[in-house]
């Protein structure tokens, strides 16, 4: 992480990954234990279950300067609380579409199921998301842009 910030002037994507405690967070841990390399652009935040993922967390992250958000949970059927990720799946399907509809690039909000054993999948997913977002460039959400006459007939 420090590496990213000590390169002055160069923009580096900042990704926050909301990871379920019981699977993806453990998977990320395993990736670390196995000394796998993955980009330091990702900040892992632990949530108790993907069902705990509040859409507001993602909105807030994007507002506060993150360039992308990744949400990870247990594979459907494997949720520690049995059904949390089934609810999360419905909610995230709808939320992702809403974000894209109002203009966010699809790459900037992604959801993946990654189990505690899938350290490799965690590394690959994170790398992929970082590279996709890097290609898009920084996210400017707060620019004041007032276009007149932008109406949908």
């Amino acid at each position: 992480m420090s590496m990213v910030e000590t390169t002055p002037g160069a923009w580096e994507p900042k990704i926050v990954a909301f990871c379920c405690h019981w699977c993806t967070y453990t998977g990320a841990d395993l990736a670390g234990l196995n000394r796998m390399n993955y980009p330091a652009n990702v900040r892992v935040l632990r949530i108790p279950c993907s069902g705990r993922m509040n859409p507001q967390y993602a909105l807030d992250a994007l507002n506060k300067g993150c360039d992308g958000v990744l949400v990870c949970g247990c594979h459907p059927g494997d949720c520690h609380y049995s059904t949390g990720n089934y609810f999360a799946r419905r909610r995230m399907l709808v939320f992702k579409r809403l974000l894209e509809y109002q203009g966010l690039e699809p790459e900037r909000f992604q959801v993946r199921w990654i189990s505690g054993a899938e350290a490799g999948k965690f590394r690959d997913t994170v790398t992929e998301v970082v590279e996709q977002v890097r290609a898009l460039g920084p996210l400017h959400l707060n620019h004041e842009l007032v276009l007149s006459g932008m109406e949908v007939e």
């Binding site: 509809y101 203009g103 004041e144 842009l145 007032v146 276009l147 932008m150 949908v152 007939e153």
Partner: peptide, 23 residues
């Protein structure tokens, strides 16, 4: 109808449309 019309716009236009609205 309204949704489909907006969905058919290119991404940048949708972004501009809603950014303009939220502003």
């Amino acid at each position: 109808a309204e949704i489909q019309k907006i969905e058919a716009l290119p991404r940048a236009e949708r972004e501009a449309y809603f950014t303009n609205a939220f502003s």
